[in-house]
Design a protein around this nucleic acid. Structure first.
Lengths: 207, 207
DNA sequence: GCGGAACCGTACCGTACGGTACATAAGCTT
DNA sequence: AAGCTTATGTACCGTACGGTACGGTTCCGC
């Protein structure tokens, strides 16, 4: 059950391109109709209004990204650590992708309207799947005794903070990607090493 | 040397109110003129154009916040840890302030124009002073042997990540403040405890 | 082959906003 | 008191955009 027809997907893809290239101001209904060779009337028929179009762009983009489910095979400690590094690298990669940045900018710029509907969509379709994948991974590690924590959410958020720092906001603000995106692998490995220092085997809960 | 006259400050204060209340769309030149009892012509005379007004709002807001310089007195380890906790609490408080959120949303929403001029302003006047205060504090602690690191920037960014996680982006996206802003003190203390676990006395550099 | 649905392209409308011009008033200097 | 500066308030202009209407075309089912 695809929520959109192929034609609509093509239009949404085009809309994402426009958004990435020129920001929100470049994404006008007339401009999209011209770029996608469709009529404005079709846009309104398919997506309701402009806000519906923006929401559709988010869900469409989310539908493109598949988060690999964790294979439940029993990993060695080394497998587990490597999986965490891969997750960290993926996370950095996703957050620094230009489509992701453009959509986050869009949702943040509209956070004052409709009770932040776009922001909620982005959290639900973008961040939540990532978080759940990571939490499943963390709990797998805990079951094998590789890491120790009581609050999975807290452990996940610590992991997130160690990996991303404030690199995401800096990129959203338009900082040239001299920081996070480069040296991605190094950052990922360092963050995981720090995470093991905090939650690794033998570590006690703080407090 | 005040960059703006008192009258202009009052107008900028009013502009910030409008921005906080209704987001960027609520901040129109006509609306500001009406709310601040001034004329549009004065706005353009003072700030050049709308972008100049936005930039002025950022520098004005930054001028209101004074970052306390670190007192150079020799602290005990406990003083030092307490200072870090205070810093963490302050950081959370600043980031979750509604004016800060509104300005960050504004700058992020405009990150595609003018080479992200507003974003650069926000980094320079908002984040940089905070970072420098924290780095001075960290190096003070290092001089007294309370913490151990080689790269101050890296230590600072780790501290930032431990304190903020992705709470900033979530708030920017409009998430109700059920997360970071509350339990601020607990979060700050936990983050500092984790920071000491990573960089505290006796810890070795990772890698 | 025929009718209808879907769609394209374009033209159109209303409005909201950035920016400018101007006429008028309030304060300051001489 | 005259003149200059500064500011207010309003009216105005151009434009850009969201949304709608409509004629023409393609395509599919019957």
């Amino acid at each position: 059950m695809e929520p959109f027809t192929p034609r609509q997907n093509a239009v949404l893809e085009c809309a994402l391109q426009l958004l990435v290239a020129g920001g929100e101001r470049a994404l006008t209904t007339a401009g999209l109709a011209r770029a996608a060779n469709c009529s404005k009337e079709s846009l309104y028929k398919w997506f309701g209004d402009r806000d519906g179009l923006l929401a559709a762009m988010i869900t469409y983009q989310a539908s493109k990204v598949r988060t690999p489910g964790p294979r439940e095979a029993i990993p060695t400690l080394d497998d587990f650590a490597r999986s965490l590094v891969v997750f960290a690298e993926d996370l950095i990669g996703v957050l620094s992708g230009e489509v992701s940045l453009a959509l986050n900018r869009l949702a943040i710029g509209q956070a004052d309207r409709d009770g932040a509907r776009l922001g909620a969509l982005l959290r639900e379709h973008g961040r939540l799947p990532i978080e759940q994948r990571a939490r499943a991974l963390l709990e797998l590690g805990r079951r094998h005794g590789y890491v120790h924590f009581t609050d999975t959410r807290e452990a996940y958020e610590t992991l997130y903070g160690l990996v991303v720092h404030d690199g995401h906001v800096r990129m959203l603000l338009g900082e040239p990607p001299t920081g996070l995106a480069e040296e991605r692998s190094r950052r990922a490995r360092l963050a995981i090493a720090q995470f093991f220092r905090l939650y690794g085997h033998g570590a006690q809960d703080i407090e």
